[in-house]
Each structure stands twice: as C-alpha cells, then as structure tokens.
C-alpha cells in the first residue's frame, strides 16, 4: 500500500422520489459532504438488484449506500420493504463469506431531509475511512495488482 491517505470510494444508489430529492435539497442548501460519495439515481430502492451492490464492491468501491423512502412512505407503496429484504440478504451473504457486511448500508432519507442526507454521507464516509479499504480490493491485490 502506498502511504497516500485512504480516500474511499462509496457508490450511492438513491431513489428518485426521496433520497435523490434529499440530495438535491442538500446541494441547494449548500450543505457540504465528502466528494467520496458517487451517486446514481434509480427509480426506486426496490429496483436495486443485489448484483449492483456486489458489482460496485468488486469494481473498486469501498462501500455502497442505498437510500430510499421511509417505511410506509414509499412512492411505489412497498418498494422500500423489498429493498430492505434484499439488503438483509446481501449482508448475510457477505458475512457468511467472511466479508465486511457494514460496507452495504441502507438508509431511509425523505425528500425533505437534506440535512439528514448530508449527515449520513459525512458519518458513513468517516466510518469507512476508519474501517480502511474493502476486503474485495484486498483480494485484487492478492492477484498481484498494486492498489493505489
């Protein structure tokens, strides 16, 4: 490992109706959070296939965050409950394979919660910084490739 300060990569999947709106509001309110969060807008948290999360971790992300509407408030009635189940399974699989399951985070952030969005992004980035690079990347380096 180089001596460069660890700068994690975190991929954020944000549902169109709540968490994307919260991210817009955080930006409009000029609330600052680390640029380590790399966002993608999806229509609903329920459309996030577990494959997306695993893929992000495989391709270099140190963590992933999935943002949806609060329980009971889903724009698509029950999408967030489906997302909750999927994330629970992804975490179980990661854990049983010996990987760190805290690298997948599910958060409910509504469209009016710009400050919460910024707070979650700050706290999670700090947490991942303390946690260090992801195990998946460690496996990459076992393959002989240097990871910066």
């Amino acid at each position: 490992m180089s001596e460069k300060k660890f700068d994690p990569v975190i991929v954020g999947f944000f549902c169109n109706w709540c968490t994307s709106a919260a991210a817009d509001l955080a930006g409009t309110s000029r609330l600052h959070y680390p640029p380590n969060i790399r966002p993608i807008r999806v229509m609903c948290s329920s459309t996030v296939d577990p494959v997306y999360l695993i893929r992000a971790l495989q391709e270099g992300a140190d963590a992933t965050i999935l943002g949806g509407c609060h329980p009971g408030d889903c724009h698509y009635i029950t999408g967030n409950y489906k997302a909750r189940r999927r994330v629970a399974i992804v975490k179980t699989v990661l854990k049983s394979l010996g990987f760190d399951d805290t690298r997948v985070l599910l958060e409910w952030i509504s469209g009016s919660e710009g400050p919460k969005f910024a707070r979650v992004m700050n706290e999670y980035t700090d947490y991942i910084k303390q946690r260090g690079p992801s195990d998946f990347k460690y496996l990459d380096s076992l393959g002989g490739e240097e990871v910066e």
């Binding site: 990569v9 991929v11 966002p39 993608i40 997306y52 893929r55 391709e59 270099g60 992300a61």
Partner: peptide, 12 residues
C-alpha cells in the same frame, strides 16, 4: 446500470 456503476466504482 451496471455500466454506470462500473464507472462510479472505479478507484481513479
């Protein structure tokens, strides 16, 4: 989505 995720997850 996966193609977009690949770009987002890239280390640098």
């Amino acid at each position: 989505i996966i193609r977009a995720v690949d770009i987002l997850a890239e280390v640098f």
